[in-house]
Simulated assay, not measured.
Amino acid sequence: MSVRCLLPLVIVAIVAVSGANFKRREFKIKIDGEVSFKATPPLSSGKTITWKFKDLQGGVIRVMDFDYDESATPQNPLFKNCASADKKTGELTLHNLTENHSGLYFFELNGKEQMEKFPLKVMRVVQKPEITNEKTTSNPDVVYLKCKYDKVVDKDAKISWSCSNDTTEELAYTKTGKTDLCCACTLKNDVSQETSDQICESDLFHEGSNIALTVVLILLFILLFVVIVLVLMYRFNNKFHDYVFKKYEKTTCLGGMLKNLDQCRSGKKTGVKQTDVTTVYTEVNKIEENNKEDDPLTDPQHDYEEPQSGDKQTDVENGTPLKKEDNTPTEHSDDL
């Protein structure tokens, strides 16, 4: 193969290597970040290096120049407080970056521009996105999710969904029946990424909460029905009334409720208003106790007194005097 044929291949290889080298030196840094550009070959004694910056509008600014034996400080206001250099290696370091520092950086050795370039893009970090949802009446099993973010600030950001391979801003979410399945959107650029709060299928379709509400209402209805039945039995069933009242009349809360029910109950039957049923029961009990105390047959401690010989005995039932038995021996007793 002749040299003339090999020459185009050499040129293509050089261009490819140069392009790869240029692409390798491309930097994307977030705001307030830091970056360093290393000069090749490194600075040596007797050489002067000058760093320059070409902004996005095409204007060229001198960042700083110095030699191996003497350093210098940047004079341009854009780099005065954020640029420094290593005089031994010629390396340039930028910190506290802003978007105004985006552009192309290059350097000269002894006034001769070098081929190596350093493109820099300073980017804002993305903000945390938010998911909004919108339902449709045409299909209740589909909800439209939207990844909401500031399109001006995060203009270079890309969107991804955790529950789908879709990369669009809006996602049509179809119901799966898995209430624990959640979805989030992520906003990402070359220097940062943020993920929204998750939204789950149980939040989008509220069938589970409707079922729980229905169960609660049914239980409340049953409880109310039982209470009504017990109240009616207390008011109209005497045996149940007496049992409940005697058992719970001394309790603080339930006893008061029973007294109020008894007032309504007694007022309806006798026409007497505000009857104190408790007082009535108490008086009846006292009368019964007094009767028991006065009854010699029921009171074991009662001392029964024999009637005296001089007292007249009467028939309890007829009220007539009883005949006294004569125990005197007759005349015929001796004969016997």
Rank of each mutant, 00 (worst) to 15 (best):
L7A: 12
V10E: 03
I11D: 03
A16M: 05
G19L: 15
K28Q: 14
K28M: 09
D32R: 14
K38S: 08
A39F: 02
T40E: 08
T40A: 02
L43A: 07
S44V: 12
K47R: 11
T48V: 00
K52Q: 05
F53Q: 03
L56V: 13
L56M: 05
M64G: 06
D65E: 09
F66N: 08
D67N: 12
T73Q: 14
N76S: 04
L78K: 05
F79I: 09
C82S: 06
A85P: 09
K88M: 06
T93P: 01
T98I: 04
S102W: 09
G103W: 06
E113P: 13
E113R: 15
E113L: 12
E116R: 02
K121W: 00
R124I: 01
R124Q: 12
V126N: 01
E130H: 07
T132E: 12
T137V: 07
V142A: 12
V143Y: 02
Y144Q: 00
L145C: 05
K148D: 09
Y149C: 04
D150Y: 03
K155P: 03
D156N: 02
I159F: 10
S160M: 09
S160E: 11
W161M: 03
W161R: 02
C163A: 08
D166A: 00
D166S: 09
T167M: 13
T168G: 08
K175D: 04
T176F: 00
K178S: 12
D180T: 11
D180Q: 10
C185T: 03
K188S: 02
Q198S: 06
I199C: 00
E201R: 06
G208I: 08
N210P: 01
V215A: 14
V215T: 13
I218K: 10
L219M: 00
L224I: 11
L224C: 10
V227G: 08
I228H: 10
V229A: 10
V229W: 05
Y234N: 11
R235C: 14
N237F: 04
N237T: 02
N237P: 01
K239F: 10
F240W: 11
F245H: 10
E249T: 07
T252N: 13
C253A: 15
L254D: 05
G256Q: 02
L258T: 11
L261N: 07
C264R: 11
G267I: 07
K269T: 14
T270I: 12
V272W: 14
K273E: 10
T279N: 05
N285R: 15
K286E: 15
I287M: 07
E289C: 07
T298C: 03
P300D: 04
D303L: 09
Y304W: 05
E305S: 01
E306S: 07
P307L: 11
G310M: 09
D311W: 06
D311Q: 08
Q313V: 14
T314D: 06
N318G: 11
N318A: 12
G319T: 05
K324S: 14
T328P: 09
T330K: 15
S333P: 01
D334T: 15
D335S: 14
L336G: 13
